[in-house]
Design a protein around this nucleic acid. Structure first.
Lengths: 136, 136
DNA sequence: CCACCTTTTCGACATATGTCAAGTATGTGC
DNA sequence: GCACATACTTGACATATGTCGAAAAGGTGG
């Protein structure tokens, strides 16, 4: 990735129109990619899953570290990634910090990934020879 | 990532139950993460967007390279990533290779990310003090 | 203030990723 | 077969990422 990485705030629930609405702008694509990247890790997916299925809806770092069987520092790192991307929020209570999934953020991401927006005909079609696309 | 990377076939549309159905297994999380990782790049998001909004629903490598303004080798690399993850499919026609988004794969991913499955009460709730979570 | 607990930050390291140029493969047309 | 066009693979490089242990920061209770 020899391309200076921009520092962008992506903690807000979301961003933009679905990928299928129009060719996505450079900036919008980055916004979406940064959020997807936060989820694109097995450990972080498990953390989200554990949080979503927890009775209380929230868990502290130590419980989560035990849940994914990693060092607390590593778990904290992953939780930080998720929070920077707006996928979870945290609150401190005594010595513990409790994390909770921001469902709106997850829903917003799902909305952006909708492939059928504005073109339901394309949803699962099996057209084969319909195009004229040719080089130059 | 000091953890040997497993080689897994993720070209199949999908995989597993939503993250909110139950604490996701190690394997299922990996399956989801690998697919998300394929999309977690601004260039690849744009490629998908360009393909989804293309009239014909498919475009050749050279058109896509022009669309994202990158070298064809780099574009080919990204398309390969997307194909390995099952997000696009390709077909050869003469000297050109045409790519098309596999909408089912995108839909399947969206389904897995559904945060409200089996727990609609958790969708956007604002509960604050309901849990008993404590260290050990 | 001090001993203790939880969480985060900081180095250090190994691995993964994105990019391009150059070479190779695949297909077209003379 | 040869010249050409499009696509893919490989090698090299810089940057990003995941992991841990150690140290620091934040909070509790004597």
């Amino acid at each position: 990735m020899p391309k200076a990485l921009p520092v962008i705030d992506v903690t807000e629930p979301i961003c933009c129109a679905p990928v299928s609405a129009a060719p996505m702008s450079d900036d919008a694509a980055l916004q979406v990619a940064l959020r997807l990247k936060a989820l694109a890790d097995p450990i972080r997916i498990r953390l989200v899953s554990i949080l979503l299925t927890a009775e209380a809806g929230e868990l502290c770092t130590c419980d989560l570290a035990a849940g994914v069987d990693l060092a607390e520092s590593t778990t904290s790192h992953h939780l930080g990634q998720l929070r920077k991307a707006g996928m979870v929020e945290s609150r401190r209570q005594g010595m513990n910090v409790f994390y909770r999934v921001r469902s709106e953020a997850l829903e917003a991401l799902r909305a952006v990934l909708d492939p059928t927006c504005c073109r339901p005909d394309r949803s699962a079609a099996t057209r084969k020879e319909d195009g004229a696309r040719s080089p130059s």
